[in-house]
Simulated scan of single mutants.
Amino acid sequence: MTDPDTREPAYRRVLLKLSGEALMGDEPYGISHAVLERIAQEVQEVAAAGVQVAVVIGGGNIFRGVAPAAEGMDRATADYMGMLATVMNALALQDALESHGLPTRVQTAIEMQQMAEPYIRRRAMRHLEKGRVVIFGAGTGNPFFTTDTAASLRAMEIGADVVLKGTKVDGVYTDDPVSNPDAMRYRRLTYMDVIAQDLRVMDATAITLCRDNRLPIVVFNCVKPGALLRVVMGEDEGTRVEAEEAKP
């Protein structure tokens, strides 16, 4: 019989950033039910470890389906459409989390009271303290800002210990690991490494916000079984971006 894991998590409160594309699975766009269920199960395991979880989710998986119609469209209008796509993803994730027994709240930067609460910082923090997962939709509520920036901003507002950037790969590599099997995973990078080498961990605004507020980022594979829990427990999973000197 295996002894239960009695270790303390490395973080008390985390902000999980999920790209919309991560929800597609093998589909060209839309939401994969299997991927959504897997992510919900991963979040459930982390919440069971006593970690408070907030989520910012992108909308690329849905907006990709209407992107041809958005060509030539005013940028602000297209960005507002993208914000609506993030709300659709937030509601889908909320449904998946609640099917696993996790109390969840969706808060949006643009008011839509029939579906979600408006974003109120103190209310979001109170939900987290009560063990609810809080999903932030509609980005920052402003065009010209990405959901990466929204994730950094919300993480700082709620006092998160770290931003966990969920992607389809195991971290940041020296080269494309698909085309180059000798590519090495960086275990640690500095914010300036990311900016100077244009590593595209997050957009420059998000990286700068994290750097200025010394908020660490961990890039990991969000659909890899157990990866989220391993990151939260402080194991060697993914790539950590912080102010200290980094090694490949």
Rank of each mutant, 00 (worst) to 15 (best):
M202P: 03
E71D: 07
S32H: 01
T147N: 14
T77E: 13
Y29I: 01
V163W: 10
R75D: 02
A69D: 12
A54W: 11
M1N: 05
L164T: 04
L215F: 01
T174C: 04
E27Q: 14
R7C: 04
P9M: 14
V232Y: 10
P118R: 11
C210D: 09
V56A: 06
L199N: 14
M125T: 14
A116I: 04
T167N: 10
M112E: 13
Y80P: 04
T205S: 13
T208K: 09
K165Y: 08
A124C: 08
D203R: 07
C210Y: 05
Q114S: 15
E37V: 00
T167I: 07
M81L: 15
I120G: 01
G60M: 09
T86L: 08
F144E: 06
I57C: 04
T6A: 04
T205N: 10
E8M: 14
I31Q: 10
M115G: 07
Q41L: 11
G72F: 05
D175F: 02
G226D: 00
I195H: 05
D176P: 14
D236R: 11
E42H: 04
A78G: 09
L215A: 03
Y173I: 08
G166A: 13
A92P: 03
D95A: 13
Y191C: 07
K130N: 14
P118Y: 06
A78M: 03
V169P: 02
V35D: 01
M112C: 08
V162G: 10
A116C: 14
